[in-house]
């Protein structure tokens, strides 16, 4: 999974309350949790499956729980976190709907980030007759872990169907905030969501 750049960290950090309890799903080497601990006094856990990332988290002094996200979050109590983060992992999750429901069960809010498949460079790849390969989507079609790529429009429709309320959205490209034509010009989407009514 691609690592996020600092602009993404800052965007996420501003949505994480001071001293928040955070669950970072697919936490990689624990860099984001470390960042949130330093910036927001956040505590909590990262969830990760890859052995090398687990070791990196232990080295970083980040609480990491080794488990397969696909097996669900049944080990976590309802509303036990202020914020559940799924950064650049949504597109690799198989049971997407279950994952989002579970995130909003264990967390009061969730922050979801994913590479925007509708980004103009990706569209150009498709126009030229090829699957996109870019910094945010660095894989070839045959070796990609990404099974559920989507655009901003797709994700927002999905939230609507699921009854998930979008509280805030930030769209970035190369670290810059994109406000005009985000589904075309943004390469990375960051959403703050909660269970809706």
């Amino acid at each position: 999974m691609t690592r996020m750049n600092r602009a993404d960290y800052a965007a996420i950090a501003q949505w994480v309350p001071q001293d928040a309890r955070v669950l970072d799903l697919g936490c990689g080497d624990g860099e984001l949790l470390n960042f949130l601990r330093n910036e927001r006094g956040a505590t909590g856990y990262g969830v990760e499956i890859a052995a090398d990332n687990i070791l990196a988290c232990v080295k970083n002094g980040v609480n990491v729980i080794q488990m397969d996200l696909e097996s669900g979050l049944s080990g976590f109590q309802a509303n036990s976190f202020d914020c559940v983060i799924l950064s650049q992992t949504l597109q690799a999750v198989r049971k997407t709907e279950l994952m989002v429901r579970e995130m909003l069960r264990v967390g009061r809010e969730a922050i979801v980030t994913f590479p925007n498949f509708g980004y103009w460079r990706h569209r150009m790849h498709v126009l030229r007759g090829h699957m996109p390969v870019s910094r945010d989507l660095p894989y070839q079609w045959f070796d990609t872990p990404n099974v559920h790529l989507c655009t901003l429009a797709d994700f927002e429709a999905f939230c609507g169907q699921l009854g998930v309320r979008i509280l805030e959205r930030m769209v970035l490209d190369d670290g810059q905030t994109i406000n005009v034509l985000p589904n075309l010009r943004g390469s990375l989407a960051i959403y703050r969501v909660k269970a809706g009514k």
Binding site: Y45, C57, N63, V64, I65, Q66, M67, G75, Q77, S80
Partner: peptide, 17 residues
């Protein structure tokens, strides 16, 4: 691990292959 997380304890869990 679950009991510890329920009490918000500092815990890491490693499942060694």
């Amino acid at each position: 691990v679950q009991a510890l997380m329920d009490k918000k304890h500092t815990v890491s869990y490693v499942e060694v292959d």
